[in-house]
Design a protein around this nucleic acid. Sequence first.
DNA 1: CAGAAACGGGG
DNA 2: GTGTACGTTTCTG
Length: 606
Amino acid sequence: METRNIILLDIDYITMNEKAVVRLFGKIKGDEQGKNIIAIDDSFEPYIYVVFDDLKSCKEEIKELNPEKIEIVTKKDFQVESEFLKVTFNHPQDVPKMRDSIKQLDSVKDIREHDIPFYRRYLIDNNVFPMSELELSGEIIDSYQTINSSKDSMEIIKIDSPPKMIGGEFPDFRIMSFDLEVYNPKGMPDPQSNEIIMIGISSNVGVEKVISTKGEDLDYAETVETEKEMIEKFVETIKENNIDIIVGYNSDNFDFPYLRDRAKLLGVDLDLGMDGSKLNFIKRGYTNAATFKGLIHVDLYLLMRRYISLDRYTLERVYLELFGEEKFDVPGDKIWQYWDSDSEDLVKLFEYSLDDVVATLKIAEQTLPLSLELTRIVGQPFFDLTRMATGQQAEWYLVRKAFEYNEIVPNKPVGIKTSRKTESAIGGYVKEPEIGLHENLVQFDFRSLYPSIIISKNVSPDVLLKKHGNNIAKVNEDICDLTDDDYHISPEYRNKFAKKPQGFIPSVIGNVLDERLKIKKRMKESVDPTEKRILNVQQDALKRLANTMYGIYGFPRFRWYSMECARSITAWGRNYIKTTMKKAEEYGFYSIYADTDGFYAKYKLK
DNA sequence: CAGAAACGGGG
DNA sequence: GTGTACGTTTCTG
């Protein structure tokens, strides 16, 4: 038996002998060459929970469908101890096949946790976090030098027990940015007829160049004979430098699809996956995301739209916002003219190409730390995390927490109107600003207003006293028929939240905020600027997560959706800000502008 | 006016 | 892959 400590970059599953086998893609920690490891685990099985009417008949009916295993388990459902049937299947793809027939059985009331992707289930149930250090033990079943780099080798290990979390500090990930320039005499280029003219590359491992068929005189240009060689050089550069994370700007939608089409036309393999597999596109709603197994592709455009709020998200605009510097720009529709022109404009195009990738890498270095922290909190793969809306991040964090608490996860709501007018919660209180130049203002604001309300008023669907029925599996009888003193009652809507027990979501947010305070304390005590910076990113990630939780309640597709909770929170919020403004007025301050969790006020007297 | 369709980024 | 974006602006009937 061998032991390997790896940093877990990626996870998926494949089918071997009709059985699902989880693959963990990692690299040896601290190894300069970053030896690649693929760990194989065939011990994990897919399952769902079944809410039953009558145990005996339910068991019999399900048995006829031939699942792997049926067990009775006790889990908490909105804090009520309840029995479920845990039905285990042979293969993840059996779940979507079987769940409808199971749901339709007479003895079955409902099915739960039937839509959690297999690899996510694996991470959650085994308490494994991506981008962290894991200890693996098992048998080495294959070991070889990878074809394109003599320095670089690969090991496949079949593990005989679940990975053990070590955690610890982040290693320095090897990051590379890239960008294509394309010949475009007719506006937006067409991959069938317009060739790639430059591939820019920048990295934190010392490689910075523009691969092209021109530019022999430039020291940062790598000149090759053909477009085909350009693409081959690009692939080789990534392999040779053992890149962990490849970043682009709008690369999901432009660079990688274009590269795929040209590579196909020219007969080049984009076999950058750790297992030798090729570039793949996975459907995400109406658009695609480009992925490799074990090589993480991050599209910064997507990330920036979430990270900062701007009117536009061009690379130039984002760069200006983050670094306060204008980027050297070549107008997009003129690129082909620069390429065809005399040496002066051609050099400009080379500079532009290099400038683009350098900027992209700088943005990556600035913004990826936050996403990495979020990955280690949320516990989903880095690739997935960079493509999730913040609400999704919070939801997967809650799914993981639910497993920890032995709570069964609520199903996604069905049939709730998404129409904003009928279903939206009123937002925060806003007092339009008094026009004019104001001096000697005082400012007041609440610290984390909505998270604080959730915790202090115990705003959570599992302790909410429902006014009209309850379509959730079971009502917590302990919170019914209490006296008004035992409830927090929201303003306006008069929603009642039991003071005890603490709700699931208030408890989770409480832990998040406690953890954040601890980190802030450590940050203050730290004298090492690097450590300070890391801790600052961590506390920021936790703050963002806590602030997102409020929003969850109001989105009709979220598992813990509760319009009552969303409305109660903002009602309390409006109440607090107005009460505080009134109080301030008693002391002679009148407010000239207020928004949600704070206001500006002037003193009436001199 | 409501609901559908287009748009974003990229060259 | 046990999943199917998203929020806003513009167009259309």
